[in-house]
Design a protein around this nucleic acid. Structure first.
Lengths: 153, 153
DNA sequence: TACAGGTAAATTGTGCACAAGGGACTTGCG
DNA sequence: CGCAAGTCCCTTGTGCACAATTTACCTGTA
């Protein structure tokens, strides 16, 4: 039969069988499910997760914000500037290290948190997963993330 | 104790506990893992999945292509035009219905398939999942996609 | 035949996402 | 101290992703 060296690939080129495509599609669908809900708050999905970080740990430097979100400055800088234009955050150069910029919440930024408390449950309803499937899916995704991050050095 | 009506939300606002963020991060990480591999082929990830559809079913109308990928014309039109500029596909208005545009593969487009055969296994190595975890994760994502799609009508 | 309603694509505008390059600041080392 | 190396951030350019609008075409119906 076939030599292991030139055996058929374990995975084929069919779109349907690719995990990556399920991931790519599901991610965009979930973002789409967030869109009408976050529109009530005047946020996009990346802006929402940025606010999540700030509600937990503000003030946060641009660097720490990018690391928490896994995004680089080229993405975070304009994103935070839009949040600042919307009046939710303020950017302030740190005095003890003038390279660093701290992002802080304004009063409207703090108040928006209360209006966001129902968002996770509303999204949970849209996803419609049992607690067990939910947890297992999250574990799988986090394991995948760790593996891929390792692989990218 | 607390009335069920104003009970605490099942899900909180903490970034770490959100499935959506694991999904969003994992999706971007996997795309990042594809980037150096697809660069050898001169493709981006969305261009690659587009080629997957074409390798399976070309010629395909723009509408069918968008439906297969879950993308609208505003994304697919420029994407396919870039593939055309790269010489991999051709766009041809259908003669029996001049509203429709068929996308066909050129000779270089067909040949690129051979060079892509190892891509799925290389990505599989980067993801580093056992067959069982791989399948379970894909099932979870596909279930999630179905649920969210239903929820979006 | 005329035309109303529907369909297929393209265009425009906004907002990510990331690579590459550059500027201001700080730190370590002779 | 002086300065090379490193850090933090911003800018520019390319390519998605999607909403909203527009254009061209087709089809059913009177």
């Amino acid at each position: 039969m076939s030599d292991p060296v030139d055996a058929a690939p374990r995975h084929g080129l069919s779109l349907e069988e690719q995990l990556c495509f399920s991931l790519y599609s599901a991610s965009r669908l979930v973002t789409a499910a967030y869109r009408p809900i976050l529109e009530e708050l005047g946020l996009t999905y990346p802006q929402y997760v940025t606010m999540l970080v700030l509600w937990e740990r503000a003030p946060v430097s641009m660097k720490a914000l990018g690391e928490a979100l896994g995004l680089d400055y080229g993405t975070v800088t304009p994103l935070v500037k839009r949040l600042e234009t919307a009046g939710l955050v303020q950017r302030r150069r740190r005095t003890d290290d003038e390279r660093a910029v701290d992002v802080t919440l304004t009063e409207p930024g703090h108040r928006l948190r209360e209006r966001s408390l129902t968002v996770p449950d509303r999204i949970g309803a849209a996803m419609g997963l049992e607690d067990e499937d939910f947890a297992s899916l999250k574990r799988g995704l986090d394991l995948l993330a760790v593996n891929v991050e390792d692989h990218l050095r």
